[in-house]
Amino acid sequence: MAVKVLVVDDSSFFRRRVSEILELDSDIKVIDFAVNGKEAVEKAAQLKPDVITMDVEMPVLDGISAVKQIMASNPTPILMFSSLTREGAGATLDALDAGALDFLPKKFEDIARNSDDAIKSLQTKVKEIGRRRLPRFAASTATRQSSRPTTARPNSSISQPDRTFQRAGNANISSGTAKASGKKYQLVAIGTSTGGPVALQTILTQLPANFPYPILLIQHMPAAFTPAFATRLNSLCKIRVKEAQQGDRLEPGVAYLAPGGQQMMVESRGSLKVFEDDSPRITYKPSVDITFASAAKAYQGDVLAVVLTGMGADGRDGARMLKQAGATIWAQDEKTCVVYGMPQAIANAGLASEHVALPDVANRISKEVGC
């Protein structure tokens, strides 16, 4: 059955262009358009689309407000279109806070190296998040408030959306009561893609200020977004979070976010190398594989690596190198992933010793490293 899409944008040209691209794929059907956020909220309730593509800046009701209202009344996977500017980054992160699952640059030439790749990227993202069927009911206010993770920014006007699908852990796979292995570590590394910003925020905001090791964060994200994302996480977390820079010395209780468009490597125990990578063979910049592989070389088995939600298989090869060096590999469980791609690649390769539900990850990490 084709994925049903509602396209929301105040530009008639952009609505038409997005529709044309999506319907080149026979597995996608654009069922209607909305020209502002208010109309999007109404049509989301009427048409029950599988996916909504949403602009940020629109008249009558902006995209962020529309996302909040849709997620409160008719939870639907939403893909945001964003400008690659500092303001665009902030607005897109607000939209993710409000419940959107993922985003793409509004200029298609920014998506990939050529138009064919850009078209494929948009189609793939829509189909992937369209498979994530969110619950089509509005939980009571009391239920939503009692079950929300405490990740809202101080003084933020954005309430946390209903993320029932990300709270439904699988007790048969892992639980917050699992015991620590007793293994000693020197580094924690976390790789993720689609759905990662929310997943990372959920995990990092629960880690204690006295976290004993440095943390490497590899999130597939454009260069314009990583400074804003690092700043936002730092404002929310007890640990310190910063965008990684060339020559950074790794410190306990500090998380280093790989800069968008660059690669981050552990050069030796205690220092980072951040560099431009023009290799056409490397799809992801930053790449989880590259960072994981460097950690395996520098820290051998003294690494706890976690692969979270995301499309594709980035992280599998690097995790294999870590595993061979004696490191511990965990993967997010399928039920709480936005897209079960990267963790599935880890699972299928037999690399993960645990499959952990998102709400349990922070607690399991803290126990495992002896916080």
Rank of each mutant, 00 (worst) to 15 (best):
I52S: 04
A199L: 01
I52P: 08
E368V: 11
K184S: 12
A189G: 00
F275T: 00
I239W: 09
Q262H: 14
A223W: 06
T151H: 05
T291P: 05
L216G: 03
I203S: 00
Q160V: 15
V56C: 09
A66G: 09
M1I: 08
G310T: 08
R17L: 14
D248M: 06
G370A: 10
D278T: 12
D162T: 09
G253N: 10
S181K: 09
A345F: 04
S287I: 00
N114K: 09
A178T: 13
D50R: 04
G270W: 08
T328L: 15
S19L: 05
Y284K: 00
A168I: 00
L308E: 06
R240I: 09
A189E: 07
I290D: 10
S147N: 10
A293S: 15
Q263N: 08
A178Q: 12
R86Q: 14
A180C: 02
L308M: 05
A139Y: 09
A171K: 14
S193P: 11
T124Q: 15
F275N: 02
S235K: 03
A319V: 01
I346W: 08
P359Q: 01
P343T: 05
A118V: 06
I190R: 07
Y340L: 07
K242C: 09
E109C: 03
R113C: 12
L204G: 05
I158W: 01
I111M: 14
S271Y: 10
I119G: 04
A89M: 03
I28K: 03
D314N: 05
T283Y: 13
S12H: 14
M221F: 04
V35E: 14
E20S: 08
S157I: 12
D278E: 14
F137Q: 09
L304F: 08
D333F: 05
P105D: 13
S268I: 06
L101W: 06
R364Y: 08
V56A: 05
L24C: 13
I282E: 14
Q332Y: 06
A228S: 15
A171V: 15
T141I: 14
D25C: 08
S12V: 11
L204Q: 06
R316E: 13
A171F: 15
A180M: 04
K273D: 09
H220Y: 07
Q324W: 04
P280G: 13
S366Q: 08
N363Y: 14
G370R: 10
L200D: 09
L358A: 00
N172M: 08
L304Q: 01
Q219E: 10
D102Q: 04
S287D: 09
G196W: 05
T328C: 13
V266F: 03
S156P: 01
M342R: 03
M80D: 00
S11L: 05
M80S: 09
G312I: 06
V51H: 01
D10C: 10
Q219I: 07
K106D: 07
G37E: 08
I365S: 07
L22C: 02
G195Q: 06
N155S: 14
Y185G: 05
T202R: 12
G370C: 10
I111K: 04
A138H: 07
D333W: 04
G176N: 11
A224K: 05
A152L: 12
P59K: 03
S11V: 00
K38L: 13
S181A: 09
N172I: 02
V288Q: 06
A118T: 01
T192Q: 11
